[in-house]
Design a protein around this nucleic acid. Structure first.
Length: 555
RNA sequence: GUCCCAGUAGCUCAGCUGGAUAGAGCAACAGCCUUCUAAGCUGUCGGUCGCAGGUUCGAAUCCUGCCUGGGACGCCA
């Protein structure tokens, strides 16, 4: 539990004691006590609406209840300096300030692990994201999914969950047949044969590149080869190269997966039929019109879904159900899937499947990633200027930079449409939130360098009692909010809260910087402020790292 | 037609499991560099929280209906 949580918890307990001591309500009647941090500093460090919540039970006016609570609370035990009763019945608490310096010491001591909490209690969670077909290039939407999925995984880990990142490779089915046929056609074209691309073929430059590679290594060896053998080779080759490309692109985007799960392994390891058997045994399937159906409407889906088509092959859903069964078999208690907006109609049937297999609906959450629109100089960018095709993730990384790209994609709630302003993301100015935050970090590093030249280093033992200015205290409070911000973002699956937090922290630092000096003639104050800014630096660094953004020491 | 997401300042968005006067950035305007990085700070201006009802001590937040924008509704993947 973090410092601030500890304080709040103690305050809650003392509030409960005060309520029972005042005879306002019995312990069982007291609702969950909510301690909030008021927006307005005049409303204290913390506040509670408990008196209003108790109005009905205690049959008294909220302000009168607040008076009773105030008269009965133990100031010393709750670490309260003073309290006010305000508005309709809020109780505002002004805390003894020594807790603030504890926050600084905790940050310095924990360093890179500052921000970790145990609210996840080691729960095994799997985050599956990107999972783009291995048939082409990663685009904008994938990049957003990658940024959101990776950031979410980072903060879940920090909040104490046992997280595994997974990529589902759709390496079975029609699209792979198409990949093979496309590659075959390109290969034959490369060696001067008259071959046409399949109807739904992949026309990307990457396929042509692979065909050229094959010609370089193998010449025209496959010209008259047995079609099945040739295609088997092209299948393996194409998949390998496509998957490698995905891995490279994502690694360069600072996204790594714990597991790359192959769809075709479900076939090879015969994991599909047992799941069909289980569904049938549970009475969740029936036959109609020569097909096998899943009664997904039993679990709120619009219509039942076909599992085995008339021609005897599976629909896309079938191996996907087996895949989710496999995930659950691997011991994951909670599954988080991050899908593109075009898949959102697919959610009810997948959730139905989870339940039909005997699991709870909420063991699967699906986070939808909404569409991304690129803008440059106020104009909508439809196509890449370089290639004339849709803008790829790699182009974005190269043009905008990884830091800005990651930050911008993490910045907005995933389920909202995102306008990505290229001009802003590329600008090296205060308008650009990424630079604004990074600048705060660099500024601190600069001060630390100058202190270092004078032989001063941030010291865990510094006497922080001299940090009494408003800006000092604002900063300490803001640092103290970090573990909660992480926990909150994790609980709500809301990675964009981290960019909000880190921006706030940077703002508080810049404001402090303009109002107070760190390196002064007053040695005690200098030491205290060095410890303070080092704690800010650690927090900025950690929060940026959650988002996948670097924390530069110079700018 | 059914379902999902969104609608908050001129623009881009926070806030949404009910709480105090609805916040931030940009834009506009006015200030701050002999001082640790001005990629910064301070202030001013800016709102019928899409519309209409409802629930209650209290609604941007919850419920219902409607309007607008986007998306999904295959024995495709």
């Amino acid at each position: 539990m973090s410092q601030v949580e500890q304080i709040k918890e103690t305050l809650k307990q003392e509030l409960k004691h005060a309520v029972t001591a005042a005879g306002l309500a019995s312990a069982e009647e007291i609702p969950d006590v909510v301690i909030e941090t008021p927006k307005d500093k005049e409303h204290g460090d913390f506040a509670t609406n408990l008196a209003m919540q108790l109005a009905r039970v205690a049959k008294k006016a909220p302000r009168a209840i607040a008076d009773d609570i105030a008269a009965n609370i133990n100031y010393e035990a709750a670490a309260i300096d003073k309290l006010d009763i305000a508005g309709p019945g809020f109780i505002n608490f002004f805390m003894k300030k020594d807790y603030l310096s504890d926050i600084v010491k905790t940050a310095l001591t924990m360093n890179e692990s500052f921000g970790t909490t145990d609210i996840g209690a080691g729960k095994k969670v799997q985050v599956e994201f990107v999972s783009a077909n291995p048939t082409g290039t990663l685009h904008l939407g994938h990049a957003r999914g990658a940024a959101v999925g990776d950031t979410l995984s980072n903060i879940l880990t920090k909040a104490g969950y046992d997280v595994s990142r997974e990529y589902y490779i759709n390496d079975a089915g029609n699209q792979i047949d198409n990949l093979v046929l496309s590659l075959e056609a390109r290969y034959l074209q490369e060696i001067g044969q008259d071959a046409s691309m399949p109807e739904d073929g992949y026309h990307g430059a990457d396929i042509i590149g692979f065909a050229k590679e094959i010609v370089e290594s193998y010449g025209d060896r496959f010209k008259d080869a047995d079609t099945d053998k040739r295609r088997a080779f092209f299948r393996d080759y194409g998949l390998k190269r496509e998957t490698d490309k995905l891995k490279d692109d994502l690694a360069d985007f600072r996204v790594r997966f714990d597991n790359w799960f192959s769809e075709s392994s479900l076939y090879e390891e015969e994991k599909i039929q047992p799941v069909l058997d289980k569904l049938s045994a549970n009475g969740e399937t029936y036959e109609k019109d020569g097909a096998l159906w899943f009664r997904s409407t039993e679990y709120g889906d619009d219509k039942d879904r076909v599992l085995i088509k008339q021609d005897g092959t599976y629909t896309y859903l079938t191996p996907d159900i087996a895949y989710h069964q496999d995930k659950l078999n691997r011991g994951f208690e909670e599954l988080i899937n991050i899908w593109g907006a075009d898949h959102h109609g697919y959610i009810p049937r997948m959730q139905a499947a989870i339940q039909a297999l005997g699991y709870e609906k909420d063991q699967l959450t699906v986070q939808i990633i909404q569409m991304v629109n690129l803008f440059e100089n106020g104009e909508k960018v439809k196509m890449s200027k370089r290639t004339g095709n849709a803008v790829t993730m790699r182009e974005l990384m190269e043009e905008v930079g990884i830091d800005a790209t990651r930050y911008f994609f993490a910045m907005r709630a995933a389920e909202t449409h995102l306008d990505f302003d290229l001009t802003l993301a590329k600008s090296e100015s205060n308008e650009n939130p990424v630079y604004y935050v990074q600048y705060a970090h660099a500024r601190i590093c600069s001060m630390l360098r100058q202190a270092d030249e004078k032989g001063l280093k941030p010291d865990h033992e510094a006497d922080l009692s001299v940090l009494t200015s408003e800006k000092d205290q604002d900063l300490m409070k803001k640092i103290g909010e970090y573990p909660e911000a992480v926990a909150d973002a994790a609980k709500r699956h809301a990675p964009h809260r981290m960019t909000n937090y880190v921006y706030d922290l940077a703002q508080t630092l810049h404001s402090f910087y303009n109002a107070e000096k760190v390196l002064t003639d007053d040695e005690q104050l200098t030491k205290a402020r060095l410890a303070l800014v080092e704690a800010v630096r650690i927090t900025l660094h950690n929060a940026l790292s959650d988002i996948g953004v670097s924390a530069p020491e110079k700018m």
